[in-house]
Nucleic acid binder design. Structure first.
Lengths: 377, 377
DNA sequence: TTGTACGCGTTATCAT
DNA sequence: ATGATAACGCGTACAA
């Protein structure tokens, strides 16, 4: 029935000390007599004091300055990632988080380093980037962290770099899952799996490939793995490398595409002659074309990394680090398998039905108009 | 470079009106001259004003009072759900959310209604409950909402009840996915699928069963569906009903268990004579025994509903409704397929590596000791 | 070592 | 129709 939770003042009164003393105890600032500490701790326990985060944030009145560096180019997944970030901007501003979204050429460690240099000079609290297996990147990350800037790797880790955290799926596990799926779909028959990657310098691509290889070779010895196609996540390159393979040899029974450029793969699949059985196809990330292909039955499964969850976790983590708090323990992001049946709905429908508590009162309308306005911008 | 975002005072100054007038415009309180409204709107646009939610929350100094009603009993999934909620309590208190966790017999609409009556008298802002297909429950939900209490159904919806929202997976889709998996694993061979449910009055169970039936009958006509076992989510009941079936007939090639009581199923599976091939097994929800079974190869796949995500969404949604805001559009929760390979790690490991920004400063230690203390309780 | 007082941006109330 | 101002709880600068 208590409608008001205890405050630091309540604790001070209960402990018979001043507000400032309680603050010193609570925030470990030191310089407090031992017996005062004990009395304060006791009062906190008795009253069940819990720090009010809204008040704490307000009193500091700090605007966090974060940046996200996302590869540009035709890769639809990164376009989607960028769109999710853009859509979050206003919401984040309401929590006093100022997010810059930067573009950068994919698979280019030098360009990434340059951008990081510029960013660190403009003064930011943290940055999220897509990791590369590249010594100069690891070096630059170390520099940033020495300068007190939080660094997160997103989607793909940066091996040997002292980043604060990696936010993304375990890509080896994703590859193993793909291997399991492909194996299952062969139903004991022989076959040959064709892997497609963007670049082997991208740790996520390399790890997915390795995971698939592990599972297939150990659990499905009747399956063979063809030489890897390297497509730089560009659909033209993928298409051009793939066409001759499907034209000249008919032994490919499965395709595992770990990265982007799948528009090229799909064009090839859709143009296969009727007589030629289409291979089992597993690819990554629900982007529009992949979704269509799954709905049309041109491919069999998509492994997704839930970019919305990744971004939410990354922002929460950046904030915790900037606050010098222990990061919230978020659940690890798991590679998620989608078939035609459990493909998520297009428009991010939620299951919320309109009702009396929403959209009715004056303040309800106020919120609505504000929100609509924000979305327009 | 701006380290301070514009405030309502800034807007007032820019618009040449008082603080209170700006507040009236921003919060649609009315009673403002049209020309003032226009000037304020213009100033807001020019300055890029965004409401500071920390300040807003602080000024209201409201503690939300929510309740969650979770079935008791041996069902491990609900035990897990309860544990997740318990673990969130202190965190929630820091955001001034007071969460009560209540227990109730499973599949018992009357008991649920009684509990809801008691709760509504103690004064709460919102409640989350596991829905039942039951007229008196629908009736009671309507009463609560008329009294201004937000009502969410969690895990299982309540058909025809005017709840504010349903937070959970689409259970028909989950069933369809199970059907697809079972079909794939048969590799074109004939077979007979044995479904196990807790109760058909539970909408989630009924829908999963129906979804599986749809996919199997339409896509895999060589598969037959055996009469449904009703086990009330109790492992002894499940075991007792299952033993004779596996003893007397050897034609079951797959089992789909939509609910709880799987300890009984697993005992039966583990004690099958060596000569008898174990069936393909798909079940729901990663609870310890199911995890072990998947690791041991006793079952083939688990369909999970990510209870942590469900709870996070439910709380966020309750808060929005209590605030009379438009609920955040959260991504729909999707049934997630796990094989042995992509089973999430046990201890909720995150990918965070310790580093300089965390656990070092004085305030870092303060946070740490507080958090550890909270966990002990 | 301990205590006081002000600022943060919003909401709500009271006065004009 | 408009304006002034007191909370709200925490962090912190400064005084004792």
């Amino acid at each position: 029935m208590q409608s008001r939770l205890p405050t630091l003042s309540d604790v001070a009164r209960c402990a018979g000390v001043s507000y400032a003393t309680v603050d010193r105890v609570v925030n470990d600032r030191g310089g407090v007599a031992e017996k005062s500490v004990i009395r304060v701790r006791k009062a906190i326990d008795e009253l069940g004091y819990v720090r009010n985060v809204a008040a704490a944030n307000l009193s500091q009145n700090k605007t966090y300055r974060f940046a996200a560096i996302i590869p540009t180019g035709t890769n639809q997944f990164f376009q989607q990632l960028r769109a999710i970030l853009e859509a979050e901007r206003i919401r984040l501003l309401a929590d006093r988080i100022d997010l810059r979204i930067e573009g950068i050429a994919a698979f280019d460690g030098e360009a990434l380093c340059e951008r990081l240099d510029i960013l660190s000079q403009t003064g930011i609290d943290g940055v999220a980037l897509v990791g590369t297996d590249d010594d100069i990147v690891a070096q630059k990350i170390a520099e940033l962290r020495s300068a007190g800037i939080a660094v997160l790797t997103l989607v793909s880790d940066a091996p040997n770099a002292p980043r604060d955290a990696y936010i993304g799926i375990d890509n080896r596990v994703a590859g193993q899952t793909a291997g399991r799926l492909i194996g299952l779909c062969h139903g004991g028959a022989c076959g040959r799996v064709l892997p497609i990657v963007g670049a082997l310098s991208a740790p996520d691509h390399a790890e997915r490939l390795e995971g698939m290889r592990e599972t297939v070779t150990s659990l499905y010895p009747d399956l063979d793995i063809a030489p890897v196609i390297i497509g730089r996540d560009e659909h033209e390159i993928v298409e051009n490398k793939l066409r001759p393979i499907f034209k000249n040899s008919h032994d490919i029974t499965a395709v595992y595409s770990v990265g982007g450029g799948n528009a090229g793969l799909l064009r090839v699949l859709r143009s296969l002659p009727d007589g030629q059985n289409r291979p089992i196809v597993v690819l990554h990330d629900i982007v529009p074309q992949a979704r269509e292909a799954l709905e049309d039955g041109v491919i069999d499964a998509i492994i997704d990394q839930r970019p919305e969850v990744e971004i939410a976790n990354a922002l929460s983590c950046l904030r915790s680090i900037a606050d010098r708090r222990i990061p919230d323990v978020t659940d690890p992001i798991l590679p998620t398998v989608y078939f035609k049946e459990n493909l998520p709905p297009h428009g991010r429908d939620s299951f919320v039905r309109p009702g009396h508590a929403v959209n009715r009162t004056a303040s309800g309308h106020a919120s609505k108009s504000r929100i609509l306005k924000e979305i327009d911008q």
